[in-house]
């Protein structure tokens, strides 16, 4: 299995390279540039700036310069926020984003799994219907609208939680953003878990387990949950990456100091360095998550053998 993991890591290198290349050129094909503003810069200043960031070179040359730096671990400078390197901005913002997304991920996964199981065991009874309703709300309402609704209700009318902003170490400020992020994730997980659990509960081997008289609790915990998790686990990797990207918008709405603040302004300002740097970071996270998911499969389904 170690050999398999190593090979997967090695095979990720060309994938990463292709992804970086596509991102680089797509970003450059978009109209506009980092130095377009309301007020046009004097031509000489603009030329100097462009020369400083190598923007005057042919695109292909710029591409190789970028890759060369990347291989040395340098994500380059920000072109808009003066004096900040992309790595430094990531170091400032990303830990917060990661905390927010991971908190939402852990809570949502747990809640989703438990809710899905309860719904499956009570199939077509009231807990199942309640779940369908709650899930639908989570999936249908987009996060920016959900954020506004929660801010208005719990932040402004009821005043239970702050509607936005950040005070260091205050979990109260995290409740609403985590809820907005976690809800759709929990909803999808619970749907998946409900479906696969119902399927597993109808299998011959669960009937065998029941026939042994080991009790409902062991039937569920030992015989049903593990096989039922297989389809859910394959969603967890992409799920976490949705949360990480979704968190960018949610941070912006709630005024939280994550990487979202920089990323969204950077995308609007064509700050090539930051957009590419963040994208590459996320790409590595997603590649790593997929590897972890594949390894978890081996534990869940013994028929999977890694060669």
């Amino acid at each position: 299995m170690l050999g398999y993991a190593l090979r997967r890591v090695l095979s990720a290198i060309p994938i990463a390279l292709i992804a970086v290349t596509i991102c680089f050129f797509i970003l450059r094909l978009a109209p506009g540039g980092p130095f377009d503003g309301e007020r046009a810069l004097p031509p000489l200043v603009l030329a100097n700036l462009r020369a400083h960031y190598n923007l005057d070179q042919p695109l292909v040359v710029q591409y190789f310069i970028y890759i060369w730096r990347l291989l040395h671990g340098d994500l380059g400078p920000s072109m808009v926020i003066e004096g900040f390197s992309v790595s430094r901005l990531i170091a400032i913002g990303f830990p917060f984003t990661l905390t927010l997304a991971l908190t939402a991920f852990v809570i949502a996964t747990f809640v989703g799994l438990v809710a899905g199981m309860i719904a499956a065991v009570n199939q077509n009874k009231w807990p199942d219907y309640v779940l369908v309703l709650v899930v639908m709300i989570g999936v249908i309402i987009p996060n920016f609208l959900m954020a506004a609704l929660l801010q208005l209700w719990f932040g402004v009318y009821l005043r239970w939680f702050p509607a936005g902003g950040w005070v260091n170490g205050s979990w109260m400020h995290l409740v609403l953003p985590v809820t907005v992020l976690a809800w759709p994730h929990a909803a999808r997980i619970s749907r998946l878990m409900r479906g696969s659990m119902i399927e597993v509960l109808g299998t011959n081997y669960v009937r065998t387990a029941r026939s042994k008289g080991i009790g409902q609790r062991l039937v569920l915990a030992r015989h049903a949950i593990k096989p039922a998790l297989i389809p859910v686990v394959s969603y967890l990797g992409p799920g976490l990456s949705y949360l990480l990207t979704g968190s960018l918008a949610v941070e912006q709405i709630f005024g939280l100091p994550g990487i979202g603040k920089y990323f969204i302004t950077a995308a609007l300002n064509r700050d090539y360095g930051i957009v590419l740097g963040t994208t590459i970071l996320y790409m590595f996270i997603i590649l790593a998550l997929n590897l972890i998911v594949d390894l978890v499969y081996a534990w869940l389904d013994p028929k999977v053998r890694y060669r």
Binding site: T203, N204, R207, K212, G213, G215, H223, K303
Partner: peptide, 27 residues
């Protein structure tokens, strides 16, 4: 079912038709 669990598997046991699917594949 929970009362029945005291007897099934102990005093009365059952074997099913399809041995390929009647054992839990993950245990």
């Amino acid at each position: 079912k929970s009362q029945l669990d005291a007897y099934r598997g102990k005093d009365i046991a059952m074997i099913f038709q399809d041995p390929m699917t009647s054992l839990n594949p993950s245990l």
